[in-house]
Simulated assay, not measured.
Amino acid sequence: MTHDERAEKAFLTRYLQESRDALVWKLDGLGEREARLPMTPTGTNLLGLVKHVASMEYGYFGEVFGRDPGVPMPWLEAGAEDNADMWATAEESIDWVREFYVGAQSFGDRTIAELELDSPGIVPWWSPERRDVTLRQIIVHLIDETAHHAGHADIVRELVDGSVGLRPAVSNLPDHDAQWWAAYRARLQAVADAFGG
């Protein structure tokens, strides 16, 4: 492996890990009930988002490159109910989902370390014209997917208990009190209402 490829892998892996971390910390401090609360009409919930992203890592870094993670995922098997990867059963605790995701990350990191960025893979669930890929493409795809779901998790966590931000110590929001935010939200509501109901 060349120095340039090592540097590119490190760069891509850093962004992937930042998205992973942004997603998983959204579970911090929550109880089993709060982590499972369906906060949208389609049932989006924090624990399900983490379970889904972990499942994606196993699939994209595993099956796509002919690597068996050796981890059963019955929610992805033929005949599983729709959306079974988007929520956690009563037996799948917060700790279980966290460990499942830690395992997925370790498996993904091994795949990245052991393969070249141009290593070919096949995504069988993509359309025929798109399914031939490289490891580089899959890493970028997973950065995008993980960041996408971390954004969902940020909004869901805010709906659950008001916690927001990229990392526990970095909210990326102006530092104002609840009164300021209530006035801000009211102003946005007034602008929206000006366009009719």
Rank of each mutant, 00 (worst) to 15 (best):
S171H: 06
M56I: 13
V164K: 12
K51C: 01
D85N: 13
S171F: 00
Y101S: 14
E116D: 15
D177T: 07
M73V: 15
G43L: 08
S119N: 09
V140L: 13
H148P: 08
T134F: 03
D109F: 07
E91T: 13
V123S: 11
R110A: 15
V156A: 02
D132K: 09
A54C: 05
N45G: 01
L159Y: 05
F107K: 06
V97H: 02
R110P: 02
I94P: 00
G162K: 02
K51L: 01
E92Q: 13
D177F: 05
R98Q: 06
D177P: 08
I139K: 01
R157E: 11
R67T: 08
E158H: 02
W126L: 12
A88V: 09
L47N: 01
S119I: 02
V170Y: 15
Q105H: 13
E99R: 14
V97K: 00
G162L: 08
W126C: 01
R110K: 14
T134C: 07
S171P: 02
D109L: 13
L76I: 12
V102Q: 15
S119A: 15
E63A: 13
L117H: 10
M73Q: 15
I138K: 01
Q179W: 04
D161K: 02
R130Q: 13
R157F: 07
G48S: 08
Y101N: 11
D161I: 04
I138Q: 07
H176M: 09
E77Q: 15
V97T: 08
V170F: 15
W180Q: 03
F107V: 12
E158W: 01
E114D: 15
I143L: 11
T134Y: 02
D175H: 10
G103Y: 02
Y58H: 07
P74Y: 11
A169D: 11
V140Y: 06
H176N: 07
T134S: 14
P120N: 09
W87H: 12
W75K: 09
E57M: 11
E129S: 10
G62M: 03
L115P: 00
T89D: 15
H152A: 09
D82Q: 12
S127W: 10
W181R: 13
S119C: 12
R110H: 10
V170K: 10
A178C: 03
D68W: 03
A153Y: 04
S127H: 12
G79R: 07
W96P: 00
A147R: 08
P124W: 11
V170Q: 14
T146M: 07
D109Y: 07
R67Y: 05
E91I: 09
L47M: 07
G62S: 04
G121Y: 04
V140F: 06
D118N: 10
M56R: 03
R67N: 06
E114G: 10
P124K: 14
N172H: 03
P174W: 00
E81M: 11
